[in-house]
Simulated scan of single mutants.
Amino acid sequence: MSTSETRRDLLETVSNVEADEQRLLSVAVPPELSLEAARERIEEAHTDAEQLERDETTEGTRAALETVRRVLNDYDETPANGLAVYAGVVGGDEVVYTFDDLAEPVPEFAFERDSEFDTDPLAVSPDTGRYGLLVVEHGKAALGTTAGEGAETVATLQSDTAADTPTSGELGDREQGQREFFEDVARRAGVAFLDEDPDDDAREDATPGEPDIDPVEGLFVGGSSVTATEFLEQGYLDHRLQQRVLGDAVSVGEASADGLEQLAAKVQDRLEAAERAAIEEHLGDLFAELDAGEAAVVGREDTEEALEYEAVETVLATESVPAERLRPLEQRAVEQGGDLVVVPADADGYDRLEDEGGVGAILRYPIE
């Protein structure tokens, strides 16, 4: 979650940057383009800029080009999904933002010079983590996932017995049929969202072509209000998945791909609240460990020392920390199996972290 949170927050920052002249450069490199070819295109643009009449605007462009060239030289090869570099001069200060761990591939090479950064090549890159979606009604269910916008269908289920319809058959048979169907839905949810069902046939049915599914960070359940609530309250889900359910059941029209889309749209507020809660939980853990004199540090110097010891589990940084400082922190944390969380200004605990230099880290073990 947290690295995705970082990308989304940084991209929002980039999209809000403005200059009074066309001195901001946006460069996007797709994964299939070699860095050598990308550098050649940058060099061509640099040569063209050198031939321009020197004034305040073109001097800013030259400085941005030098920065982009320097960033590209830091890489031995193009990252798996490409990269994007945003550089320029704002208010007399040079700024640079780099995205090299993207959720989706950069679609094509782009080189733009303007008074605003062009973030369109990364429009699909930011994500909010992967959440499960489950819509259940009498005799029908749909399972899917969402990463913040829209829904991807994982499986649809339908009972093959007439007893699962709400009006046919004897009452006892209908209730038994519904219980059996709920059990099947819960089992399929375990396949899709926990990846712990040894039944290969069931796995193939639930997730065609995808034998390995990463666990979801949370689960949203919807459907007809009575049926979905009954499914949740009677404890059909694996307890580990039940603990990931975010809120009460949501009223959704039908158990289908359209129903999953409706559910994804309706739970946006809950998803944002869940992400905020996760950030504040990280902050709480940081300060609890710090106050106990245990596995936590604050301040840039101590955080970098902890990274040197490869003791970092999670780096936390306030949104005021410049992107050029966030990038190396995130890279070093990820290299040692950790992550980075960017803390928004309205999160509980933000001011304390800001007072400590804006940076801290939760550690795997205390360091002397």
Rank of each mutant, 00 (worst) to 15 (best):
R174F: 10
Y131V: 03
T156S: 10
G172P: 01
R244M: 03
E356R: 12
L33A: 11
H239R: 13
E319S: 15
V96E: 12
R7C: 02
E18Q: 12
L271K: 04
Q22I: 01
G222I: 09
V135I: 02
T227H: 10
S256G: 05
R364Q: 14
P107M: 07
P121G: 12
V191S: 15
G139P: 09
D351H: 09
A38H: 07
E175H: 06
L283R: 10
E108V: 07
T314P: 01
V250Q: 13
E43D: 13
E44L: 06
A292E: 14
E116H: 13
L353T: 03
Q262R: 12
L10R: 12
F220N: 06
E313M: 03
D55L: 03
E183W: 02
Y309K: 13
A306W: 07
E66G: 08
H46R: 15
V221Q: 10
S26N: 08
A45I: 01
L283Q: 09
E217K: 08
Y309C: 00
E12P: 11
R113F: 00
E170V: 07
L271T: 08
P344Y: 06
T3V: 06
D184A: 15
E59R: 14
A292T: 01
G148K: 05
L241C: 01
A288Q: 14
E217P: 00
V27H: 05
G358D: 11
V124T: 13
G337D: 08
F231Q: 09
L134E: 08
S115E: 11
E77M: 03
Q242G: 08
D9F: 03
V245R: 06
A103Q: 09
A292Y: 00
E272F: 00
Q243K: 13
L271D: 04
V342C: 00
E66M: 03
N73Y: 05
V252I: 13
D48R: 15
D164W: 03
A306I: 00
A147T: 15
R39S: 15
S256K: 05
D351Q: 15
E112I: 13
E180P: 04
P322F: 05
A273P: 00
A361D: 07
A296Y: 09
V297T: 05
A333Y: 09
P166T: 11
E354K: 08
E21R: 13
V341E: 14
E32W: 09
T145V: 15
A186M: 06
E36M: 04
L263Y: 10
S224L: 07
T61G: 02
V90N: 09
V95L: 02
Q243Y: 07
S256Q: 05
Q234G: 00
E43Y: 04
D269V: 11
A323I: 04
Q262W: 05
T146F: 08
S256Y: 06
D48P: 01
Q22H: 11
G247I: 06
D248W: 06
Y236F: 15
G190W: 02
E108Q: 15
G358L: 04
V71L: 10
G139D: 07
L52V: 00
D93A: 01
P366K: 02
L246N: 06
A192D: 09
